[in-house]
Amino acid sequence: MPNILVIDDDDIMLKAIKNILNKDGFNVVTATDGKEAFDLLDHTIFDIVITDLMLPHANGLEVVGRLRHNQGNRNVGIIVVSSVGNEETITEAFRLGADDYLKKPIMAGELLMRIRKLIANKNSKTQFVTKKK
């Protein structure tokens, strides 16, 4: 079962995404701020990280940047989900290594589709199976 980490400071969004993704057979862990996310990332290997950009403790760009330098989670798929529509920020997110960007309000179906696509891409590239430590 693929592992997904969702980082957002809006608890409603967290619960909703968790529910939707659980139904489709994903294992979802949530974090409400940057610090919590970093703690989780240190101990767990994820397949996909979905992050907001405006977060307490560390902004989403920092999360993206750190993930790409993190041994265990270097190959994780990163989807940025944010209400920020500012083009510079979006470019920056991609430059730092985000794989995809969705603007809030999002379409649930689209999010699911992109997650599946990312996982499929990843599996075709890498052979080893990720698992929880």
């Binding site: 409603i12 969004m13 209400s83 309000p105 999002i106 379409m107 649930a108 179906g109 689209e110």
Partner: peptide, 11 residues
Amino acid sequence: RYRKNFRGEVG
């Protein structure tokens, strides 16, 4: 609050 996060079918 939900509407602010979701559009499309869910919205």
